[in-house]
Simulated assay, not measured.
Amino acid sequence: MNQDVIITCAVTGAADTADRSPHVPVTPKEIADAAIEAWNAGAAIAHMHVRDPETKQCSRRLDLYAEVCERLRAADCDVIINLTAGMGGDLYIGPEENPTAFCPETDLVGGLERLVHIEELKPEICTLDCGSVNFGDSNLVYISTPDMLRKAAARIQQLDVTVELEIFDTGNLWFALQMMKEGLINDNAMFQLCQGIPWGTPPELSLLKGMVDMLPANSNWTAFALGRKQLPWAAQSTLLGGHVRVGLEDNLYLGKGEFATNGQLVERAVNIVENMGSRILSPNEARQKLRLRGTQ
């Protein structure tokens, strides 16, 4: 069991959830405020996407990321900034009779173009989605090829940004380990084991244990599951030696029919972990644990 636990709060994601809950943050101010709320509740890391304030849909706009970071860095808040670098991989296949007529929702760019905001803003952590996967029941495929991943991993390493390896299936983990063998991923990388996203890894404990057994010794890792399994996974991850991720990116509810805030989800996770006898790490303790930039 992990005795010293880092809590990440994923405050807003890429999914079309902003109209499903009144608490999903949309504007840069709302996203920064959500990160501060999560930090006040006990989160050491805030993982963030940004959204277009007009459409409420996910965005890759540098100015939106810049405003979020500026607000957090100007606040009396030492939360670790973790920015997604996963946007730009959405390929919507066309209809059966013409699959190469990609739908207008497609947002597909190369691996390096997905890092424009990382290059400019230099967060302490950014994500790298470690493989392609079917997303949901439509024609959406998330594209992240070995060529794209190798280029992006090398650039993130050059920027001295710690990488969080997003693992949506066992093949993603296999390739992440291959990149480590090739020297493209540093040994302080974080592994994020993502379960319950159709059609990646199902939220089954046997599969979580199997992936944990594949990890290098002494790795820092977290597991999360979507929806009502989010909070049970906080316990399961801790029991198996990992850290914890909660937040409105992955789950909108505190209980049946009760919308959660990011702060409430973090508070619940803190209670779970502490009642198991483990300790919650502060942001500065997490920086030391993860050997983030400037702490090695």
Results as ranks from 00 to 15, higher is better:
6 I>K: 01
7 I>V: 15
11 V>D: 02
12 T>S: 10
13 G>T: 02
16 D>Q: 12
22 P>C: 04
22 P>Q: 05
29 K>V: 11
30 E>W: 15
34 A>W: 00
36 I>L: 09
39 W>T: 08
45 I>M: 10
47 H>A: 10
50 V>S: 00
52 D>E: 06
54 E>Y: 09
56 K>W: 08
57 Q>D: 15
60 R>M: 13
61 R>E: 08
62 L>F: 07
62 L>Y: 04
64 L>D: 10
67 E>K: 01
68 V>R: 01
70 E>H: 12
78 D>H: 10
87 M>H: 09
88 G>E: 04
89 G>M: 12
89 G>C: 12
95 P>Y: 13
99 P>V: 04
102 F>S: 05
105 E>C: 14
106 T>M: 08
109 V>A: 11
111 G>Q: 02
112 L>S: 03
116 V>W: 09
117 H>N: 07
118 I>W: 01
120 E>N: 15
129 D>P: 05
129 D>N: 14
130 C>T: 04
132 S>F: 01
138 S>P: 11
140 L>T: 06
142 Y>R: 06
143 I>N: 02
144 S>L: 09
145 T>W: 10
145 T>E: 01
146 P>C: 11
149 L>Y: 01
152 A>I: 00
156 I>A: 00
159 L>H: 00
159 L>V: 00
160 D>R: 06
160 D>N: 09
162 T>H: 05
167 I>L: 07
168 F>P: 02
170 T>R: 09
170 T>V: 15
171 G>N: 12
174 W>Y: 15
175 F>R: 01
177 L>V: 09
178 Q>S: 08
179 M>L: 05
183 G>C: 03
186 N>V: 05
187 D>E: 08
187 D>A: 11
195 Q>H: 08
195 Q>E: 11
196 G>L: 03
201 T>W: 02
202 P>G: 15
203 P>M: 10
203 P>C: 15
210 G>K: 12
215 L>G: 04
222 T>P: 09
227 G>W: 05
238 T>R: 00
239 L>H: 15
240 L>T: 00
242 G>A: 14
243 H>L: 06
247 G>E: 04
251 N>M: 06
251 N>L: 13
253 Y>T: 08
256 K>F: 12
265 L>A: 06
266 V>D: 01
268 R>L: 13
272 I>H: 06
279 R>W: 13
285 E>L: 09
285 E>R: 03
290 L>T: 04
294 G>Y: 07
